Amino acid sequence: MKLIQREIVYKGKIFDVAEDTIEIDKDKVTKWDLVLHNGATAIVPITEEGEVILVKQYRNASNREVLEIPAGKLEKGEDPLTCALRELEEETGYRATHIHKLCAMFSAIGFSDEKLHLFIATQLKKGQQHLDEDEYITIEKYPLHEARDMIFSGEIEDSKTIVGILSACYFLNK
């Protein structure tokens, strides 16, 4: 298989949508839609008490508030670590003394090229939130093992948060 042509059919503020023409084999060609995204970062902040800091915000895809780890979109050419540290402080008010990359993943590889870089942050220092004009976020803290259990009870459904919490548990041997 190979990409023959890409046509941008929608240009948006956060992502674009392309219609790709894909050659399956010499005799077969098909069209696929693809969401084009600059990528993002997400960070699992862990307090000295072993609590994970989650943000609660409204998401229109679920039409309700959801619990998530802090995250944000990469600017074109931006270093993922720089973005993760910025989003941590903007959304939670915390700064991290120690940060480690956990992994990188495609958030929805079946229809998007968004690559998400996941970090864990420890040795946190409390500061002040710097929310965007359109952000309404509250902060909640949970013991890491409780947050892990919230995944399996269905209270946490966001994919980056699920991968982030489980990766943090693995990384911290919890």
Rank of each mutant, 00 (worst) to 15 (best):
M1Y: 12
K2P: 03
L3A: 00
L3N: 04
L3I: 15
I4Q: 08
I4P: 09
Q5A: 11
V9S: 02
K13F: 14
K13R: 14
I14T: 04
F15I: 08
V17G: 01
E19S: 06
I22C: 03
E23C: 10
I24K: 04
K26Y: 07
K28S: 14
V29R: 13
V35S: 00
H37Q: 10
N38P: 10
N38D: 10
G39W: 14
A42Q: 04
I43V: 15
I43H: 00
V44P: 00
V44D: 05
P45V: 12
P45A: 12
T47Q: 03
T47E: 11
T47H: 03
E48L: 14
E49G: 09
G50F: 10
G50N: 15
E51C: 05
L54R: 00
V55Q: 05
Q57S: 04
Y58G: 07
R59L: 11
N60G: 12
N63D: 06
R64L: 10
E65C: 10
E65Y: 08
V66Q: 02
V66R: 03
L67G: 02
E68Q: 05
G72H: 04
G72M: 12
G72V: 15
K73P: 07
L74Q: 03
L74W: 04
E75Y: 05
K76C: 08
G77A: 08
D79Q: 06
L81I: 09
L81C: 01
T82D: 04
C83G: 02
C83M: 04
A84N: 06
L85M: 05
R86I: 14
R86F: 12
L88V: 12
L88G: 00
E90P: 07
E90Q: 08
E90V: 13
E91I: 12
G93F: 10
A96N: 03
H98D: 07
H98F: 11
H100K: 07
A104D: 12
A104F: 05
A104T: 11
M105W: 06
S107I: 15
A108N: 15
G110I: 00
D113E: 07
E114F: 11
L116G: 02
H117F: 15
I120Y: 04
Q123A: 15
Q123S: 14
K125T: 15
Q128P: 09
Q129Y: 14
L131T: 15
L131G: 08
D132V: 12
D132M: 11
E133Q: 11
D134M: 11
E135R: 15
E135F: 14
E135P: 09
E140I: 04
Y142P: 04
P143L: 08
P143F: 06
E146H: 01
F152P: 01
S153D: 07
G154I: 10
E155P: 06
E157K: 13
D158E: 05
D158I: 14
D158Q: 02
D158M: 12
D158Y: 08
K160G: 03
I162Y: 04
V163L: 01
V163W: 01
G164Y: 05
G164N: 02
I165F: 04
S167E: 06
S167K: 09
C169H: 09
C169V: 06
C169T: 09
N173I: 07
N173A: 04
K174S: 06
K174G: 06
K174V: 09
